[in-house]
Design a binder for these strands. Sequence first.
DNA 1: CGAGTGCGCGTAATCGATTACACGAGCAGG
DNA 2: CCTGCTCGTGTAATCGATTACGCGCACTCG
Lengths: 333, 333
Amino acid sequence: MANIKDVAERAGVSVATVSRVLNGNSPVAETRERVLAAVRELGYRPNNVARALRTARTGALGLVISDLTNPFFTELADAVEDAARGLGYSLVIGNAGERPAQQDDYIRTLLDRRIDGLLVSSAGTGSAMLREVVASGTPLVLLDRAVPGIDAPCVRADGRAALTDLAAHLAALGRRRPAVIVAPAGTPTGDERLELFRTVLAGHGIALPGERVGATPDLQPSGGRRVMSGFLDLPEPPDAVLATDNLMALGAMDELRARGLRVPDDVALVVYDDVPWFAHTDPPLTAIAQPTRELGRAAVRTLLERIEGRPAESVLLPARLVIRRSCGERPGT
Amino acid sequence: MANIKDVAERAGVSVATVSRVLNGNSPVAETRERVLAAVRELGYRPNNVARALRTARTGALGLVISDLTNPFFTELADAVEDAARGLGYSLVIGNAGERPAQQDDYIRTLLDRRIDGLLVSSAGTGSAMLREVVASGTPLVLLDRAVPGIDAPCVRADGRAALTDLAAHLAALGRRRPAVIVAPAGTPTGDERLELFRTVLAGHGIALPGERVGATPDLQPSGGRRVMSGFLDLPEPPDAVLATDNLMALGAMDELRARGLRVPDDVALVVYDDVPWFAHTDPPLTAIAQPTRELGRAAVRTLLERIEGRPAESVLLPARLVIRRSCGERPGT
DNA sequence: CGAGTGCGCGTAATCGATTACACGAGCAGG
DNA sequence: CCTGCTCGTGTAATCGATTACGCGCACTCG
């Protein structure tokens, strides 16, 4: 591949001039056309590695995502990628697969690659590497999941309004025995969503006893199914179930179908995360939609603030309740 | 951040020695411990940008994927990422969103970044940049979609056996009027799947007339729904429908439900691509499962062959039919 | 005891760009 | 006509690593 020296020779100028023409940092006159012609003829493209070494800017962002195959994170990654490209950055992606050790591995690799900034939706809460990132001075923005003790802006969705609406929705439909399938303890979002929901339910005089809260070992369908099975075996089974993550809801539906129960007639079902598929299930699922693409965009924007040395705030975007048919007909519909 | 010079000073040796200790290329004796100690104390990590410049190896692979939000490609990307990491490579990802122009953009960026190798599941068939990649000598492997005129190994799934099984399955269940929802013309996989299916159906004396072949403008659910609607309006509507890509099947199901038709009683439904969700729909969908993760692994393996200068062959892995309940009960079940 | 061998290490070139500094030419003002 | 700008360009340092080459020392062997 042609390098800047080849171009300089062909145009009969120095490498400095070529660089200046290409970067437009300082005015260049008559040689300009000759340089551009040489560039065209040789098909020259600047070597980004060399440029990165000299300028200490790689033009790449790192994204460490907790689980790429989870549709919520897929969409988030897609949005981040899109936003990054729009701003002229490439994206180096790492999938932690919900394993903190692998996450640390990735962060290390990304730091070694001297990415300009890092986005992390942390798998665990006690990452030593995250601390190192902060110490290294690499701009960091947390995505979807805050990590206590890490001084970095966090971009995520606020479920309060949506959960408040949901509680009202369920109350209006006469559901009095809600249950929640939560992510394993330690996943910050799970616990938080549970507590919020409990609080807003209380506002309607509806209790959420511990027996109707079931944690899964992971975020997979199988766990959702097991928890749902436990709920249905209770002397007083729930009449409405909220799954705090999307995949778990699938398993929950399987169990309901296997027992011949119907949604929403026998049990109402609500999912946290509105992945496109949920509009196509039978019945279409009422869901709490996080503004996924906006989160991705906001995260990149926030990261760029940090990269450019400006202070950056955490961002909290409201999630909203999308009412479909899995809780029963809306009153007045 | 500390660099190799800092380490050398602290250990009282030259930078060459530090490099040698760290890379183990040539024997180093007594100073070894001092160097390692200095590395530890300073928290030194080699700068990958500088290393890449010098060695002309970045340790990064590029993946340009046609549509990251399509579950098939999500899983493929995940598998590629996993395999790449396992071999010590990072992955720079680009989502073409089925737009050839954006794909070319990405390929260009990746070449500029001097990635060691490139994986592309091409959005279009006439990419000028792909030609340039080959010309540039950057190792290239095509993924899932072959591109005519591009001399690079292609890793994809062979649906012949699965479609043969499917034809037999449908024939055994007495379905005589199959239909196919295909991807827009120009998507190589779509056309190929259609022709294969037509051929194997003929083996059972079943025809696939043009009126029961419907193309969608994109791979989205809405298109699938429109095509299905057209099928159902035919004087002789189909009794079995194959969707050649996963998302289109969702729309097709929507249309069936909207018309009060039942799967499989009224219409059998089969999907190309077995995304995990299909096991959780009602009814669970019979699908043609591509060996997605194996494809990802094979692609990375093939790319590495090319990177290391060995010749590499195309890979064709068999897809298989996963029978669930969307075509009716299996005879003998 | 001297020459040869090999090991361990330092010096310096190199990868391909950016950019500080200097220099020559052209031009304006006094 | 000389001084001093400005403008355009070249020279060379620099980013942080790897690595070819060479040197000195210790050891071995004749």
